[in-house]
Computed example of a mutant assay.
Amino acid sequence: MAENSFADPNFSAEKYKAHRPKYPERLYNDILAFHDSQGGQRGLAVDLGCGPGIVSEALALYFDKVIGVDPSSVMIDVASKCTPDTLRGKLEYKTGSAEDIPVGAGTADIITAGTAAHWFSPEWWSSAAKVLRPGGTVALFATAIPFYTLNSHPEALRINKEARELAMSALKDYMQKGNQVAMSMSSELPLPPADTGIWGPVDRRVWNKGGPVEGEEVYMSEKMNLVEMKARARTGGPTYRWEEANRAKVGTPEDPTEQVAALIKQITGWSDETVFEVGYGLSLIMVKRL
């Protein structure tokens, strides 16, 4: 299986843009608090693995200039076409990789990657060190498997357990190493080399690792219905790879996405239009360029 399913010509960057989750404002505030407290500037932000520009557009509210970088020219085209008029002039998109970041040496104030760094090779840290100015920040954040919050339904814990088991069983042959790293809350993500004098201490934060827990705040959540839930699921790499290998079964009872939706309906009695709350496990890794 190809490592970069998102660059596949059959993959819809438009659907990815429409249905992927948006990171909460509080995440950007936490990143900026770390960045600002250690002398970070607000000039140029570089967003790696930018896809159709979800994080890049958010960063443009906080930085003078944002360059989004992605290896998929299709993603870059969609990001460029969808740039809001109010952000044109502040946003630029380039085809490129994390291992060879296409910006000048020492020009970036922050490098971000939203649910993307698990696809980078460990050598990408050398590229980051080259383009970041001293005092610059790397902020890597990623969502894990979504879960139904405790206030979404009395059987939320059962739904989470059974839906996850069903999906993982159906998609296990379509999982890749990067997917596994993201689902582990980035615990296996390669960190910058220590004792080189280039990088400061790593600040690692994790929210809702085990799903919903009584009394624990859900850091990142959104409301949706089952139609939207299925559309979201189909933007995931493992689901996309299953669909490409089983095109005649997409939308049938053999489709894992349809099976999960049917399971949820059976447990809850929800219709396609019932609105519920979904939360996400979220990891954040931040480190300063010395």
Score class of each variant (00 low, 15 high):
1 M>I: 03
2 A>G: 12
5 S>T: 10
7 A>H: 05
9 P>Y: 10
12 S>M: 04
12 S>C: 07
14 E>I: 14
16 Y>G: 05
17 K>F: 12
20 R>F: 10
26 R>E: 12
29 N>Y: 11
29 N>L: 14
30 D>E: 13
30 D>G: 01
34 F>E: 00
36 D>C: 10
39 G>K: 09
39 G>E: 09
40 G>F: 08
45 A>K: 02
46 V>Q: 00
49 G>K: 02
51 G>C: 05
51 G>P: 07
53 G>C: 02
54 I>N: 13
61 L>W: 06
64 D>F: 03
68 G>L: 01
69 V>T: 00
71 P>N: 11
74 V>H: 14
80 S>E: 13
81 K>M: 14
86 T>G: 09
88 R>F: 06
92 E>K: 00
95 T>G: 10
98 A>I: 08
100 D>R: 14
100 D>Q: 14
101 I>K: 07
105 A>D: 15
108 A>Q: 07
110 I>V: 15
110 I>Y: 03
112 T>F: 04
112 T>P: 03
113 A>C: 07
114 G>R: 03
117 A>W: 00
117 A>R: 06
118 H>E: 00
120 F>C: 01
120 F>A: 05
127 S>Q: 01
134 P>S: 09
137 T>R: 00
138 V>L: 02
140 L>V: 08
143 T>F: 15
145 I>D: 13
151 N>W: 11
152 S>I: 02
153 H>L: 06
159 I>M: 14
160 N>D: 06
160 N>V: 01
164 R>A: 14
165 E>R: 15
170 A>D: 14
171 L>F: 13
175 M>H: 12
178 G>M: 06
179 N>E: 11
181 V>S: 04
181 V>Q: 08
183 M>Q: 15
183 M>T: 04
184 S>V: 05
186 S>W: 02
188 E>M: 14
189 L>F: 07
190 P>D: 13
194 A>N: 05
194 A>M: 09
194 A>L: 10
195 D>K: 12
196 T>C: 11
196 T>F: 10
198 I>P: 00
199 W>F: 09
200 G>I: 10
200 G>Y: 00
202 V>C: 04
204 R>M: 08
204 R>E: 09
207 W>V: 04
208 N>D: 15
209 K>Q: 15
210 G>R: 11
214 E>W: 03
214 E>F: 07
216 E>N: 07
221 S>H: 06
224 M>K: 10
225 N>C: 12
226 L>G: 00
229 M>W: 15
230 K>D: 12
231 A>K: 10
231 A>M: 09
232 R>P: 00
233 A>V: 09
233 A>M: 15
234 R>L: 11
236 G>E: 12
238 P>A: 07
239 T>I: 15
241 R>S: 03
242 W>Y: 07
242 W>N: 03
243 E>C: 11
247 R>Y: 08
255 D>M: 03
257 T>F: 08
260 V>Y: 02
261 A>W: 01
261 A>F: 05
261 A>V: 14
265 K>C: 07
265 K>M: 13
268 T>L: 11
268 T>N: 11
270 W>I: 07
271 S>G: 14
273 E>V: 07
274 T>G: 11
276 F>I: 08
277 E>C: 04
282 L>W: 02
282 L>T: 10
284 L>Y: 01
284 L>I: 03
285 I>E: 03
288 K>V: 08
